[in-house]
């Protein structure tokens, strides 16, 4: 079996390549059914339906964004309504400054809601993905450079309870995967 990285360092996992998006989809279904939990498939673009094939649940990023949006709305309401109506009522053109003028603050409430939601969506996505990070063991494998071009890969991590060099290798071979490689941490 091929090896990538420094074989003296701890084992990261076993990686392999498949020829196409549909091959990757079917391989993912089989790995899922074999009961593996710490593994991933890598592709140049998101493959439609892959979350189902891998048995993944919906991303909960939307819940984070809801909280972010709510924070933005609250900040905007406090920033506009309280000072402009109670603390420092600014009378312009003789117009009232009471509670019923609240529609005049809607644009700023909307903008700040969107702003904080967008920040949460971007940085929350990065945080959930563990990014940014300097390096990753899978990059030790030279073939993996093609993941952003036209390569389709899957990797089963050594920390997976079901991971076994012989059994996992036999399963990957059974899936028709090529270039089965042991990838090390360093």
């Amino acid at each position: 079996m091929d090896r990538a990285g420094n074989p003296d360092s701890p084992l990261f996992g076993m990686a392999a390549e498949v020829p196409s998006a549909s091959a990757l989809y079917h391989a993912a279904e089989k790995v899922r059914d074999a009961g593996y939990t710490r593994w991933d498939v890598y592709s140049p673009f998101p493959i439609h339906g892959m979350d189902h094939a891998m048995g993944l649940k919906k991303s909960w990023l939307s819940a984070l964004v809801f909280c972010g949006g709510l924070t933005g709305l609250t900040i905007a309401a406090l920033l506009t309504f309280y000072p402009s109506t109670i603390e420092y009522p600014l009378i312009v053109a003789g117009k009232p400054v009471n509670f019923f003028t609240v529609p005049a603050f809607f644009p700023i409430m909307f903008e700040l809601t969107v702003l904080l939601s967008a920040f949460t969506a971007t940085f929350g996505m990065l945080a959930l993905n563990g990014l940014p990070r300097w390096n990753h063991p899978i990059f030790n494998w030279n073939r993996f450079d093609r993941v952003s071009d036209d390569g389709f890969f899957l990797a089963i991590e050594a920390t997976d309870p079901k991971f076994d060099e012989e059994a996992t290798r036999a399963m990957l071979e059974g899936l028709g995967a090529k270039h089965i490689t042991l990838v090390y941490e360093d």
Partner: peptide, 11 residues
């Protein structure tokens, strides 16, 4: 550090 893993694509 983007890797293109489906666990990343999901989010």
């Amino acid at each position: 550090g983007w890797r293109g893993g489906n666990r990343q694509w999901k989010h």
